[in-house]
């Protein structure tokens, strides 16, 4: 347990909720805290109970992903001296993440009683490329007073953890056959794609149809960034500009058979990004495109039907070699509920 040393709390066990930014940054954060001598406690994988707890604690109007994050915070209670909930204002130049990421520690504090200490260091790299290091100094100060140690832990974390995805993101080996294999690109936030409880095993359902899944993380980072700047007004959400850049990269390729956009119900960012990406794709190419919206009320049967229908449509079109001209007048909105 924590002991008090010279007016500064020295924490031993730091809890990290397995939600939202976990998928992108856990690898780096783990290295960082362990370098400082802390023990990292990760919340359990998302379960029915975690979802229920989160839904109960969180305001109704929040998006599904935030509700699940709340469930993970609750899962950590009593298991750690403190919980790391950084305030992710910005993780890239001139871009933001999402208002809810910026206010996440406030939301958690306002909604869950009896919390342990929350480390809510702000990460803001919008105008300051040292924003990450600054946050590290703040977060690290709860574990050590040695700033040189914090700095070296930060550097190690960036070097070995940046861009490394957690185990959940890996595709299971040997599901796909070579013959008749499709390639389906899936656009969505990491926490919507890699949390198989949140999305009812969506990616593996697609793979079970003998379709390879291409996520944004599998595309070339530099090309995405380059292409994201080719629209009149660049998106100011980190995820948005990534999705737009990725859509261009996918349109350039000839081997993509269809694109699925996966979003959490109530996501403000996706309501815009999805619309933008969908129009972009439909204007350029006649590529099958569908939207899947997930929330705590989504049923698995509905999801299965939608995926099967989408894949069947693609196979049928391939067989009949249909190539419709792409045009604005064909624009329609994919029915956007999974259940």
């Amino acid at each position: 347990m924590s002991i008090i040393l010279m007016g500064c709390f020295i924490m031993k066990k730091v809890g990290i909720p397995r939600g939202l930014s976990y998928y992108e940054f856990y690898a780096a954060w783990k290295v960082f805290f362990e370098e400082l001598g802390a023990e990292v406690v990760l919340s359990d994988r998302t379960s029915k109970k975690i979802i229920d707890d989160g839904v109960k604690a969180c305001v109704d109007e929040a998006c599904f992903a935030v509700k699940i994050f709340f469930g993970h915070v609750i899962n950590l209670m009593g298991r750690a001296d403190c919980i790391f909930i950084p305030r992710l204002t910005s993780i890239s130049r001139n871009e933001y993440v999402c208002p809810k990421f910026g206010g996440l520690p406030d939301m958690v504090r306002g909604s869950i009683g009896g919390l342990p200490f929350i480390i809510d260091a702000e990460i803001n790299m919008r105008k300051d490329k040292n924003g990450g290091l600054k946050a590290a100094y703040e977060a690290g100060s709860f574990f050590t007073t040695d700033r040189a140690l914090i700095r070296s832990a930060y550097n190690k974390a960036v070097k070995s953890g940046y861009g490394v995805l957690p185990a959940e993101a890996a595709a299971p080996a040997g599901v796909l056959k070579n013959e008749g294999r499709l390639k389906i690109a899936v656009i969505g936030h990491g926490y919507n794609l890699y949390d198989s409880c949140l999305n009812m095993n969506l990616l593996n359902k697609i793979r079970a149809e003998n379709a390879e899944v291409i996520t944004l993380d599998m595309l070339d980072r530099d090309s995405i960034i380059k292409r994201s700047g080719t629209i009149p007004k660049k998106m100011f959400w980190n995820f948005g500009s990534k999705a737009v850049g990725a859509a261009f990269c996918l349109l350039d390729r000839q081997d993509i058979d269809g694109i699925l956009y996966v979003m959490a119900f109530g996501c403000g960012v996706d309501s815009f990004v999805c619309d933008y990406v969908e129009r972009l794709i439909r204007r350029e190419k006649d590529l099958p495109f569908a939207v899947i919206t997930l929330d705590e009320h989504s049923g698995e049967a509905g999801l299965n039907t939608r995926i099967e229908a989408f894949i069947d449509m693609i196979r049928w079109r391939k067989k009949n070699d249909i190539n419709l001209p792409s045009h604005g007048q064909y624009l329609h909105h994919g029915e956007s509920s999974a259940g």
């Binding site: 969180c58 305001v59 109007e61 929040a62 999402c98 208002p99 809810k100 910026g102 206010g103 406030d106 939301m107 504090r109 306002g110 909604s111 109530g266 403000g268 960012v269 309501s271």
Partner: peptide, 13 residues
Amino acid sequence: SCMPEIVAQSVLP
């Protein structure tokens, strides 16, 4: 679905 106000709503209680 207004994102900033959902955060505000969470802290108002």
